[in-house]
Nucleic acid binder design. Sequence first.
DNA 1: CTATAAACCTGCTGGC
DNA 2: TGCCAGCAGGTTTATA
Length: 271
Amino acid sequence: MPELPEVETVIRQLREVLPGERFKEFRLYRKAVMPDVTSTNLRNILAGKVVERVFRRGKFIIIDAGEAPYLCIHLGMTGRLLWGTRSPCNPRHLRWKSEFQGGNCLLLDDIRCFSRIRLLPIEDSYLSKRLGPEPLGNGFDVDYLREILQSSRRTIKSLILDQNLVCGLGNIYANETLFAARIHPQRQGSDLGEEDISRLRASIVKTLEAAIGRSGTTISDFRDIYGRPGTNQNHLTVYGREGEPCPMCQTTIRRFSLGGRSSFFCPQCQR
DNA sequence: CTATAAACCTGCTGGC
DNA sequence: TGCCAGCAGGTTTATA
């Protein structure tokens, strides 16, 4: 579910409510979502600390409470972070909860339990070194993109999905972006020319920014912190549209499997 | 180096 | 109506 635009939607809302909140108690209902620390341990480390800042790195949500390790949350496929003034009666698949002094709550609701919550040392090596640059940040320019593409024989789709190379794209936006750039998902990285690279970069930025402007894509599971869906699903060009006409040329959109994931493309527009 | 499959989970849909 | 196969926004690890 949550790719960069959905996570961005969530952190922008968290920024409105979390700073100033003081951690009090934690509940863990499914060990798998927080494998490295117990809730008792988490309380010992964070209780009494005040949230200072919330930010995003790729698809990770990071809560900074000052002189403490970062609370780092990844929503996996079906994770939702829900905000409540008290414990809401009905999060269907409650896996984890953080209670704040004063009665506010942050809940993790996740059907499939692929979400992960961890404590990370400030300046964690994974976030700073292993994860690629932000596609909407300064490091993601044409020179960088050319550098990572021209030396690789991998398909362009697997390259832009690789979080170590550029972070935040998932299957929906990889498909949408390649359509916008008129590039076939199976093209080899090293095969792309200067025009392709430049169009690809612009398409990634444009596609992600448009989706953020629409508060993310809700196929079925994504919700913001108040439980509301996004609207970008009404603007998808190829994802989930096998058999339908291409919005540009009316050619029938096709689907095939690449790296175990569905790829949608227009055989006319994308070469 | 690159690609594929499986594993981790649950729920929904479509075909028979 | 009921059952089962297949599929789903992600990531990591193993295998070829």
